[in-house]
């Protein structure tokens, strides 16, 4: 197991290197500079600024500097917000995004599995149609539309939740739901079809033949086997929750990391772009690793390559 994890860590490093390199060259190719949006200033000042941030160096020197920054995890000062380092920005806004993300994942996985199990148990009967309808609606309505609708009806009209901002738990419910609902719909569909597939298999019939009740059979036998496709979806789900949060954080005026990630690109805020990209990449790569380990925990037939018992 340790050997396997070590091997995967090496792969993660390679992947990170590729991501960092690709990001660097994409930024280099993009026109504009961090100072383009400011008032016109004399070329001397621009040259000084470029010199200060090392932007006048040839690309290979800049590339080397970036790699060193990345390895030491010190991305330097933001080019837009003077006096704030990239690490500070991440440290300040990431906990907010993390809370939102975890909440959204819990909602989507919990709601998705629940809807899926209900749909499968009452196959082709009313509860199935109801939960399938909810799932399809969830998948087809974009999160920003849902966010707007929820803000208008639940927050503005009914005054159940705050409209926007980030001052406590009640502020997180609407945005987390908005992010989660699409994924919940997806997970519900996955769970339903995989539950149905498992329910017709012999071992479920065998469990019934043992005299186990309907729900005991579901929870002890069917569900665990049915969850494998859902676990597969957890990797993309993490990515989805992260990217989904960019828009939702804008709509709900949440000071999370997603906002910085998007604005840093339009601002050509090179240091912040590099910092947030590397940071998100690490999270996603680790999410994928965790999913792979979860596989072998859920299904003993899956042996991790290189893992020894």
């Amino acid at each position: 197991m340790l050997k396997y994890i070590f091997k995967r860590l090496v792969y993660i490093l390679i992947a990170l290197y590729i991501i960092v390199t690709a990001t660097f060259f994409l930024i280099q190719l993009a026109p504009g500079s961090p100072f383009a949006s400011e008032r016109d200033f004399p070329p001397q000042i621009e040259a000084q600024l470029n010199a200060k941030y090392g932007l006048d160096n040839p690309w290979y020197v800049q590339y080397k500097d970036y790699l060193i920054d990345t390895v030491t995890f010190d991305f330097g000062e933001s080019m837009k917000y003077k006096g704030r380092s990239t690490n500070d920005i991440i440290a300040e806004s990431f906990p907010i995004s993390l809370t939102l993300g975890i909440e959204a994942m819990l909602i989507s996985v919990g709601l998705g599995i629940l809807l899926g199990v209900i749909a499968a148990l009452y196959h082709n009967r009313f509860p199935d149609y109801l939960s399938s309808t909810i799932a399809v609606l969830g998948i087809s309505v974009p999160s920003f539309i849902l966010a707007g609708l929820m803000q208008y009806f639940l927050a503005f009209k009914l005054d159940l939740f705050p409209v926007s901002g980030w001052k406590g738990f009640s502020y997180s419910i609407l945005p987390a739901t908005a992010i989660a609902i699409t994924h919940a719909g997806f997970i519900a569909k996955l769970t339903r079809s995989s539950m149905l597939e498992q329910s017709s298999s012999d071992y479920v019939k065998m469990a019934r033949a043992k005299g186990l009740g309907k729900w005991t059979t579901v929870f002890k036998h069917t569900l665990r086997n049915a969850l494998l496709p859902v676990v597969t979806y957890l990797g993309p789900l993490t990515a989805g929750v992260v990217t989904g949060s960019f828009i939702i954080e804008q709509i709900f005026a949440i000071p999370g990391l997603g906002k910085h990630f998007v604005t840093s690109i339009t601002n050509r805020d090179y240091t912040v772009i590099m910092g947030t990209t590397v940071f998100y990449s690490i999270i996603l790569l680790f999410a994928v690793l965790i999913v792979d380990i979860l596989y072998s925990v859920i299904d003993p037939r899956i042996k991790l390559k290189g893992a020894k018992k």
Partner: peptide
């Protein structure tokens, strides 16, 4: 079929 009659994850 004994290949499918046992729960593979138990």
């Amino acid at each position: 079929d004994p290949m499918t009659a046992l729960n593979p994850t138990m």
